[in-house]
Design a protein around this nucleic acid. Sequence first.
DNA 1: TTGACATTCAACCGAATGGTTGAATATATT
DNA 2: AATATATTCAACCATTCGGTTGAATGTCAA
Lengths: 111, 111
Amino acid sequence: MSTPRTLDRTLLALADPTRRAILQRLSSGEARVTEVAQPFKMSLNAVSKHILVLERAKLVQRRKVGRDHYLSYRSEPLDAAAQWIEETRHFWGSRLDALEKLLRDEDRNKP
Amino acid sequence: MSTPRTLDRTLLALADPTRRAILQRLSSGEARVTEVAQPFKMSLNAVSKHILVLERAKLVQRRKVGRDHYLSYRSEPLDAAAQWIEETRHFWGSRLDALEKLLRDEDRNKP
DNA sequence: TTGACATTCAACCGAATGGTTGAATATATT
DNA sequence: AATATATTCAACCATTCGGTTGAATGTCAA
C-alpha cells in the first residue's frame, strides 16, 4: 500500500509525457542518461531534471559505474498506483452505479 | 482511450490529497461547493480552485441551480486512467519480468 | 429594496516546474 | 599531463500551483 505522499509523487511523476516516454524507454532495459536524453529535443539538463523527478518517485533507479549512470525502471510505484486506482474505483463506483447514486442524491433532498 | 493531454490532466488532478478527498466526498453523491469545502481548513476560494482543476480533468461535473452549484463525480477519467495504467503495466512489465529484463540488459552489453 | 448567502474573479505571494545556459566535477582516453 | 566525455550543480527565467484576502456577481429571502 502507498502512503498519500508516495502516491502524490508517483502520480505527479506520471503526469508528464516526457517522463512517461523516459519510462517507456527504460522499460525495455537499462540506459545511461545521455542515451535516454538523445531522442528528445530539449537539453540534456532538462532530461536530467525529469529523471530526478522519476527517481524521487522511485520509478527510476540509478546505478553508477565510473562516469556513467545507468538508469533502470522500477515497477513497484506503478503497481501501487494501479492498486490504489482499482480500490478507489471500486469504492467510488462507476457507470453501473449511476442509478444507485442518483437515488442517493434524491434521498438527500427529501427531509 | 485517453489522449496524452487528457491523461496528463487526470493524473495531475489526482496527484493531490485535497482533490482526492473532494472526489471521495462527491463519490457518495452530489454536493454544493460550500458543503464540499466545509471539512477543509483552507479557504473556500482555495477549494473552489481545486474543484476547477478537477473540472478541467472532467472528474467533476457542475450543475447550477440558482446560486447553488451542485458538483458530482464522473468516473470516466478514472476508468481511462486505470485502463492506461493496466496496459502500461502489462507492456512495461513488473516483478515477474525482472529476470527477463536483466537478461536483455546483459545482452545489450555483449556485442 | 435591502440584506444575507453562494460562488467566482482578481490580485498577490511564496514555492515548485520546466526549461535554458554556463561552470564544476569526476572519470576515460591519448 | 592534456583533453574529451558523462553528468550534475548553480543561476536564471517564465509559468504554474496552492494558498491568501478583498471585491464583484448573481440569487434568494425579509
